[in-house]
Simulated assay, not measured.
Amino acid sequence: MNVPAIRVMIVDDSAVVRQVVKQALAADPSIQVIGAASDPLFALEHMKKQWPDVIVLDIEMPRMDGLTFLRKVMSEHPTPVVICSSLAERGSDAAMKALSAGAVSIITKPTMGLKQFLEDSSNDIVQAVKAAARANVRHLGGGLAAANQAAVSAAAVRPKLSADAVISASPGGGLGSGAGMVRTTERFVAIGTSTGGTQALEAVLTRLPAVAPPIVIVQHMPERFTAMFAERLNSLCAIEVREARHGDRVIPGRALIAPGGKHMMVARSGAQYTVEVVDGPLVNRHRPSVDVLFRSCAKFAGRNATGIIMTGMGDDGARGLKEMFDAGSPTIAEDESTCVVFGMPKEAIRLGGAAQVLPLGRIPEAIMQSARGG
């Protein structure tokens, strides 16, 4: 059975970028470049004749800037968009605006040595397009913040390490100290997400009251993005949201987001919980890794922590959620119906780590229920 090729439109005012990206994508038999336009207005004319499955888009362009074009596409004909821009390299403000508008992923390109960079990153570009083509963007045009994009840069294939590289499991494969811990009033929620997670987290956290239980979060996101993402959520939410710092208390009304480029774990001191922000190798090709966070929850919190895995590509967090489940934690996986990419939750469900499977809209209620020990 022949699988249709992924149709791609490239929109960039640089002839060099159009040429190199087109060559990189055309070299993959599963991708068909249907057009390359120097600005969004030319692209729209072309796309009226044949609509692409994925758009590779620059931000700085003549006649219409990329962000305006992105918002127009998402409101009229939601389509996965990969941002390829030097603005994302110089500062993350434009990149965060693009992600908020609905971009699926970001590739940062330098201002110098552009041609060589694009040639060296051709595999990253191909993988980003393939990942975008699998994204579920059917809700984007309706303005729903349920789930629509990710701040995940394309990554080169690296050795896939488990959480063992950062934190050892409890004796008995996760059934150790966590499972035997007595319930305390210090209960918290651990959330892991990736592709589609930025808007999914916004949809969840903005619906929580100021008295919400403590929350610790791993969102796959590069360095520099997490602080700005946390600041944006903090401006929208009743709870405090910020990038985690080593030693931060896990307290009610606060959500801590793991810094990009660092792992985050919870630790217990008496009846209190804190976070540890540490260096370490990539786990499941990610840093921060959801598996690292979830394993620490299983090991040091057990039934005192609720684990939630949401939209994301791959399987990071699936084994960790199973360890939390085995340690007595209430566990939740996001339902396929609201996931941008049903990868991480699907694998967690397959492993038997999810006690409940809930659509995104019911997760805030489940978080508040967890604070009552439900």
Rank of each mutant, 00 (worst) to 15 (best):
R319L: 14
M324H: 07
R319K: 14
I308K: 01
T306V: 13
K346S: 13
P330M: 07
V277C: 08
V290L: 08
F342Q: 05
R303G: 15
V290W: 09
F294E: 10
D335I: 04
T306L: 11
L282K: 11
P345F: 00
F294Q: 06
P330R: 14
G343D: 06
M324S: 05
L351P: 04
A333H: 03
D316L: 07
L351Y: 00
K299E: 14
S289V: 04
V283F: 01
S329K: 03
E323F: 08
S289Q: 04
M344T: 05
T338V: 12
F325Y: 14
S329M: 11
S329F: 10
C339F: 04
S337K: 14
G352D: 10
E334L: 04
M310W: 09
K346W: 02
P281S: 10
F342R: 02
V277Y: 05
S296V: 07
L351Q: 12
V283S: 02
N304L: 07
N284R: 00
E347R: 15
S337M: 10
R295D: 12
R287D: 06
G343F: 00
G312A: 06
E336V: 10
F325H: 15
A318L: 12
G302M: 05
V292D: 07
A354F: 03
T331P: 10
A354V: 06
A354Y: 05
M313E: 08
E323S: 12
D326P: 09
V277I: 15
F342A: 01
L282I: 01
A305Q: 10
M324E: 12
G307K: 00
V340K: 08
L321R: 01
E323N: 08
V341S: 03
H286G: 04
N284S: 09
I349K: 00
F325T: 09
M324P: 10
A354R: 02
R287G: 08
M324R: 04
I309Q: 06
L351R: 13
V341R: 01
L293Y: 09
R303V: 05
P288D: 02
R303I: 05
M313S: 12
A348H: 09
I332S: 13
P345N: 00
T331K: 07
L351V: 01
D291M: 05
A298D: 12
T331Y: 10
A355P: 00
L351C: 03
R295G: 09
P330H: 12
T311L: 03
V341H: 01
V290G: 09
V278N: 08
T338W: 11
I332W: 13
V290D: 10
R319D: 14
F300Q: 13
